[in-house]
């Protein structure tokens, strides 16, 4: 397990960042990372040995997240998972608005758009690794990226104009 620790530990900050961007809740994000690491350890002998450890971990994390969403939906849970951040947003100083803005806007995108923007834009996965994580061909990764960016742009534009109107 020592080699597992040496290989996995450096990747944990990135896993927490992706998990937080998906769940937008600090505790839920760490639960998700913990599940991911437990699964990685129990399947450690079965991992692909072609160096794509990061892509493998992001795949486990994303599948775990999607399964938990599905389970929650099936059980009809309406737990407001973004509660904590909704409060934080209310009291956020104006200076942070620009930065808060983009995360809040990202929340309105479907998971596959959100994930492609995060995996390529923030985690800097290659298009090939992103295609592995998302389970779609590289061409689809690129067209999904382009569509996701277009939607994000459109939403940020409208957001900005409504904000301006409110300020006036």
């Amino acid at each position: 397990m020592d080699d597992a620790a040496a290989l996995l530990e450096p990747l944990i900050p990135a896993l927490r960042r992706y998990a937080y961007a998906l769940t937008r809740n600090h505790a839920a994000a760490d639960d998700l990372v913990q599940d991911t690491l437990e699964r990685a350890l129990s399947h450690w002998m079965l991992r692909r040995r072609d160096g794509a450890l990061r892509a493998w971990l992001f795949t486990i994390l994303r599948n775990t997240y999607i399964n938990s969403l599905r389970r929650a939906r099936r059980q009809g849970e309406h737990a407001p998972i973004n509660d904590e951040d909704a409060h934080a947003r209310d009291g956020a100083p104006d200076a942070a608005l620009g930065v808060r803005d983009v995360l809040a806007t990202l929340d309105q995108l479907p998971e596959d758009h959100k994930s492609v923007l995060l995996l390529v834009g923030v985690e800097e996965l290659s298009y090939e690794d992103a295609s592995r994580v998302l389970g779609v061909p590289v061409g689809t990764v690129m067209s999904r990226l382009s569509r996701a960016r277009q939607r994000l742009r459109a939403m940020l534009e409208t957001g900005r104009t409504t904000m301006l109107r409110r300020v006036k």
Binding site: R17, Y20, A21, G98, V99, R100, D101, V102, L103, L106, L117, L118, G121, V122, R149, L152, R153, L156
Partner: peptide
């Protein structure tokens, strides 16, 4: 946008 996303995380 990408830079803003990185900064926010």
């Amino acid at each position: 946008q990408r830079d803003a996303l990185r900064a926010s995380l």
